[in-house]
């Protein structure tokens, strides 16, 4: 297996240009996701979905002194996290979702039967079903480009290197240095999100440097892979299944028809 590859999205240098969104759509032939004026700052894509594989979030921070007017901006390009323990992959009943040799998570479009189970399983709300097509789609970390030795389209297009692509170990080391630098500069709100292999999904293949709490960016503060609790779920289901049999058996006690009315 090749080295684990990943994205490090440093939101402290994102300028909100959306070149990543455009490059992704162009390269991957991702269809139109609707032209909607959302009235939420400069965000006109809203969230990740079957037709949106990079989403740039715009957070307007009101001035703390006066309560109105803008004090600053947060901008962040969101993407599939390519979890170590990926719930979408775990629950996929056809094996359409798989781990590539780069340890990224990819849907095989020729296998997916559109059951939709991956959609509510994802703790980040990334993967979705394209209803007019019937199948599920999400970021592939440009699997085809990686096979050809190229970096993903979004990282290639990013003019500030807010989106960095490379071996995950290198990216994590670089991210730690970046956080230290920002803290030295007084940006004590800088923190990494999804970088730790000890979190509820075993670490993200695509992690972030954020300047506020994750939920402000539309990210879950403490995600967990749902299948972690699967053994417990089956135990309770087994208990219920046995109870069902017991209830049926109990119901027939005293009602034996043998030798009566035949």
């Amino acid at each position: 297996m090749a080295e684990r590859m990943g994205f490090f999205t440093d939101t402290s240098i994102c300028i909100g240009c959306k070149a990543c969104e455009v490059a992704c759509k162009e390269w991957n032939d991702v269809p139109d996701d609707g032209f909607v004026f959302r009235a939420t700052s400069y965000d006109n894509t809203g969230s990740l979905g079957a037709d949106t594989w990079r989403h740039v979030a715009f957070i307007e921070r009101p001035s703390e002194e006066s309560g109105d007017g803008l004090d600053g901006w947060l901008m962040s390009s969101d993407v599939c996290k390519h979890c170590t323990h990926a719930a979408c992959l775990d629950v996929c009943p056809t094996g359409a979702l798989f781990h590539t040799e780069f340890e990224t998570v990819v849907v095989q479009a020729d296998v997916c039967n559109g059951c939709g189970y991956c959609v509510p399983a994802c703790p980040y709300g990334v993967i979705a079903r394209r209803e007019r097509d019937g199948r599920a789609f999400k970021c592939t970390m440009c699997y085809d480009r990686q096979l050809g030795g190229l970096e993903p389209a979004c990282a290639k297009a990013c003019p500030t290197d807010s989106i960095q692509f490379g071996p995950l170990d290198e990216l994590r080391a670089r991210a730690d240095e970046r956080v230290a630098t920002l803290h030295e500069q007084g940006r004590t709100d800088a923190r990494l999100y999804g970088a730790s292999p000890d979190d509820g999904v075993g670490g993200d293949g695509a992690f972030f440097l954020l300047l506020d709490e994750p939920e402000v960016y539309g990210l879950p503060p403490d995600p967990v892979v749902t299948t972690r609790d699967l053994p417990q779920m089956w135990r309770w289901a087994a208990g219920a299944a046995l109870s069902l049999t017991g209830v049926v058996a109990l119901s027939f006690l005293g009602f034996s028809d043998r030798g009566r009315g035949r």
């Binding site: 969230s47 939709g116 509510p120 994802c122 703790p123 980040y124 993967i127 079903r129 539309g218 879950p220």
Partner: peptide, 9 residues
């Protein structure tokens, strides 16, 4: 906005 996706069923 929602964080997770609603079931599509």
């Amino acid at each position: 906005q929602p964080i997770i996706k609603a079931p599509v069923w």
